[in-house]
Design a binder for these strands. Structure first.
Lengths: 298, 298
DNA sequence: GCAAAGGCATAGAGACATTCTATGAGGTGA
DNA sequence: TCACCTCATAGAATGTCTCTATGCCTTTGC
């Protein structure tokens, strides 16, 4: 579902929030490196777009109206997410010059690293981080070959020659759309789950392998797929708008569950928990930046 | 802290996410109502801005690269927040034609209503909602005079003639910047808190009144202000970048605390909890849309 | 009182970006 | 092999956004 065509630009919201924080259009303009008239006109444009006055302008500065305060609050949520993307990107881009080379699995890179890096980059503004995203096998491979300093994985694997530290937890949960029959009892026997075709990632994904292993341990067969999709987003969207369950990382659907777009279904006796761990080569002293990052996370 | 100057536009991220979801640039272009070359050029521009290839283009469509999958995940977080703003705005704007008139206090309108409304508008796409933001007294006043159908407040008040339902909880918490002396023990006696000048909202705000009442109950004096600011955002920013504590709604600082920008400090024997409640006029049947919204929330 | 300083709005010109239509090239499937 | 779908390119027109220069207003300090 695309955003409305007249949705305000990120830059305008950013500018407006700065006006609210700094108390004047001029100062906000300076903070953003644009001229005062330009800022003034952009704020006016924003007010026209939203159809409401956001600022009370006076000779001593500008204060937000009631509506302005509320809109600024909403805008800050967007900007917070934007800063996380920027933090992740700068790590991505620093691939060549990074002083701390991180390699992380998809789930961690998508849902946890941006927050960690955003925070870390505030504490260490001069240090660049390089980020590579890969599957667990590749993560371990990179560390063993000295191509990365610090790795993050979510699967327990053979870790010869690597030290590790647990930095969080994740588990697979079963979710359905609110209209799905399972949504009302909010519980379903594992046999029924195993017998129901699911929306899934393609074969080979870690999530799918973990589910298959758990079902096998219970003496049940392979899960079958009603739909195989190549990205977590796609799976999520298919479950929200469709009529099939999926089994997916809790991290990936937390926001949707809180917002009520998805319902988590309890499946007694099916438990697929994974510890999220940082790993690094044994023997080498962990670079000081890496220690600092781990301290930050913990 | 403004966003980097070259940060991608919201519209481009939106378009890119659509490409990932729909599997082709052409289809995404159609979904956004622009021509295919325009979409193609915007995606290319996005790739140049980010300095990485996001899509593998082929004659059968386009699939995201590894980097593309990760960036799409980050972008979705931003877009989710943007949709919430859009939902709040459309309620704001519908002031004249709304079929369900809501009046809510600041905190609830800022931090909870957008999620509720975003979800509600998906379930009831044809129904418009009007939203007014006001303090608790005004909320009650509007309901008594029939100027609104449903209200949300966070203070227990005299509610003669109004029915109510509890829809959530909030409490005041004490927070400081990570560099503040209180951040390390993470606890401070209430006497020390009462004796320390705080960053505060202006006199008259509900938060400030609740804190003053709690301290009075403990036989302590009025809290003093090192800085008085007119919006929650401003208070938050002052605490993050300054050296003074504040006592503030947990809802308002949850994201900062999780991200490590702020540290929550335990203050034994100081507890200021508030129930968030929906209120509506007694006797009148609650409009069906209002019931539906309350069901959604619960 | 009066000047100085800071704040915001307006006007006009110029640079820049973005859009569209039309077209071409490449691969897939019937 | 033909029809269809994919995406990329070219060129022109449109529009938007920026900047500098200026004016008016209020508050502050002498």
């Amino acid at each position: 579902m695309p955003l409305p065509a007249s949705f305000p630009e990120l830059a305008s919201l950013d500018l407006f929030v700065s006006v609210v924080e700094l108390g004047s259009v001029s100062q906000a303009a300076a903070a953003h490196g644009v001229s005062q008239p330009s800022a003034s006109s952009r704020i006016k444009h924003l007010e026209r777009q939203l159809g409401m006055r956001l600022l009370d302008r006076g000779p001593t500065g500008s204060l937000p109206t009631d509506a302005g305060v509320v809109v600024a609050g909403w805008a800050e949520t967007i900007l917070r997410a934007a800063h996380e993307l920027a933090a992740g990107l700068s790590a991505f881009r620093a691939a060549q010059v990074g002083r701390l080379r991180i390699v992380a699995s998809f789930t961690i890179a998508e849902y946890l690293l941006p927050q960690w890096l955003d925070r870390f980059s505030r504490d260490h503004p001069r240090d660049s981080i390089a980020l590579e995203v890969a599957n667990s096998t590749t993560v371990i491979d990179r560390l063993r070959h000295g191509a990365a300093d610090l790795g993050f994985i979510e699967t327990p694997a053979e870790l010869d020659g690597l030290d590790e530290a647990i930095v969080g937890n994740d588990e697979l949960v079963t979710v359905v759309a609110p209209s799905h029959p399972w949504a009302t009892p909010r519980t379903v026997p594992v046999e029924a789950l195993a017998a129901t075709p699911l929306v899934m990632r393609e074969a080979g994904s870690g999530t799918r392998a973990a589910l298959a292993a758990a079902l096998r341990d219970l003496g049940l067969g392979e899960p079958s797929a009603v739909l195989e999709l190549g990205s977590t987003s796609a799976v999520r969207a298919a479950v929200v708008h469709g009529n099939s369950p999926t089994v997916i990382s809790r991290l990936a659907v937390d926001a949707e569950v809180v917002a009520g777009q998805l319902v988590e279904v309890d499946v007694p006796s099916l438990s697929v928990a994974r510890e999220l761990r940082a790993v690094w080569p044994t023997g080498t002293t962990l670079p000081s930046l890496a220690s600092a990052l781990l301290d930050d996370i913990g």
